[in-house]
Nucleic acid binder design. Structure first.
Lengths: 210, 210
DNA sequence: TAGATTGTTAATCGATTAACAATC
DNA sequence: TAGATTGTTAATCGATTAACAATC
């Protein structure tokens, strides 16, 4: 992977392309034109072609794109042709819900460990994974080839925990805590700020009310 | 609220402004300049001033912005000066986790009802709210002044359910199902596509690996 | 071959940044 | 008053859309 400097706007659309191509594949569709795909996805054919051509010429003139091939190529670009090992920090409701959600595993995101700092739940099992104390996380990362840490802890401890995880070699954090993490450049953070999302909905709702 | 045609890029930044202003308020800070705020938030002072001026001149020359005042104004813009009543469709792990998460309620997002189509869990209580059968949702919406429906159901039933909810008068949907809903214009949808988010992280991780 | 559709260049549109007069 | 900082206009940058020659 040497495609550099591709805007996050483009990258943000890739999973959606992937999803639509997966649907077409499941329907047994063999090829699709940028025009047809754009009709389905409600964006312009031009944008689709521009987006894809950041990564290579996957299409054929007069034919369009081979669905199965393009699906696979986007999968590779997204790095989900390989498995990823995850740990989750914070075994609360949300943490447990994520571990129990099977679709991540189907796409190669495998939960390997769950950690918490509440002794009352040490040993508790969530989908066959035992909750371990935070003290065990350092060795666990080293010994289990962990790529991604999922932070489902209260915001007050999140910033400090992120720094700790980075010091143990974690390169990517999926952050559900409602706070901006402060990590060195090179460490990838993807925020899921649920309250922010809900506020956006509230704004758009207020706009057309009354 | 008559501020129209403001780009979603701007709106997407409002909750973050709100969060930083809340922090400053809690620290007892009285005023802040766009410059100071931009240093904290790692964006340009120019952008902050442009963003805010979409909604009005909240600052004062030579002084900056009054923290408490700006915090309140942004709260109003986001529509969280009022309470919102929500129902949740799908009482699985994620649905339960959301209901149990107290921070939504603290911001005026109140879960009023939980619905599912699995008879085995009818009557089960999640934070004192009883899970009701889907058949009850129509009347519930009518009688309880519900603004927002939260969809935490498998993707296969989501599209149909969304249409049903719209027919009952729901104006906003917070969609956790991994599918694009098909609703009339005017109905607000905010998607939380967790798998897409994780894929973005995977992409960015792959980029700098090896 | 004729028709379809790509990849890519050029044109447009929109968002961000810079600059500065206004003014507290 | 002098200094600080806004609100706003102008300049720049980047992303999206349009157009079309290349070619399957």
């Amino acid at each position: 992977m040497v495609e550099k400097d591709i805007s996050q706007a483009v990258i943000g659309r890739l999973p959606r392309y992937f999803r639509y191509l997966g649907m077409l594949k499941d329907e047994g569709v063999e090829r699709v034109s940028s025009r047809d795909l754009s009709d389905m996805m409600r964006l312009t054919a031009s944008q689709i072609r521009q987006d894809l051509n950041h990564f290579g010429g996957f299409g054929h003139q007069g034919y369009g794109y081979n669905v199965e091939n393009l699906y696979e190529e986007i999968g590779k670009i997204l790095g989900i042709d390989k498995e990823h090992n995850l740990i989750i920090i914070g075994a609360g409701n949300l943490g447990q819900a994520l571990v129990n959600y099977m679709n991540f595993e189907r796409r190669g995101f495998i939960f390997k460990g769950i950690f918490d700092n509440d002794p009352k739940i040490y040993g508790m099992k969530v989908r066959n994974i035992e909750v371990k104390p935070m003290e065990a996380v350092k060795d666990f990362i080293k010994n289990n080839n962990i790529d991604i840490a999922v932070l489902t802890v209260p915001k007050d401890s999140a910033v400090e925990l992120a720094e700790e995880l980075v010091s143990y070699g974690i390169k990517a954090i999926w952050n559900f805590a409602h706070v901006d993490l402060n990590v060195p450049s090179g460490i990838k953070v993807e925020n899921v700020h649920l309250l922010d999302s809900l506020m956006k909905l509230s704004y758009n709702l207020a706009l057309h009310e009354e």
